[in-house]
């Protein structure tokens, strides 16, 4: 129900606390960062943008973790199949 996409913070404005310039694949826009007040973003951080507001910071660690989990899932499965293949092949 809500289109939101990851963007990189490329500039912050000391005179305007809750404003940031973000970039998505070369497209730039000024956005409002008030919703990140509890943990203000730094230049280079990735945030999720919805209707011109940063909704949350994106965790690189969690993203990597997720991809890794999925990759391993598949490998475990392949390994199991391989083992089954050896053991039960022709029965």
């Amino acid at each position: 129900m809500c289109l939101a996409i990851p963007a990189k913070i490329v500039e912050l404005f000391p005179e305007e606390q809750n404003r940031a310039l973000i970039e998505v694949a070369g497209v730039r826009r000024h956005i409002d960062t008030s919703l990140l007040a509890d943990d203000p973003p730094k230049t280079g951080d990735w945030v999720l943008i919805h209707v011109g507001f940063a909704m949350s910071k994106i965790s690189e660690e969690q993203a990597l973790d997720q991809i890794q989990t999925l990759t391993m899932l598949g490998e475990q499965e392949a390994a199991i199949q391989e083992v089954q293949g050896y053991g039960l092949g022709e029965t």
Binding site: A25, G26, R29
Partner: peptide, 12 residues
């Protein structure tokens, strides 16, 4: 181009 893709993602 990346920018076209970026704008399209941003604007749905």
């Amino acid at each position: 181009r990346d920018t076209v893709r970026g704008a399209c993602e941003l604007l749905g």
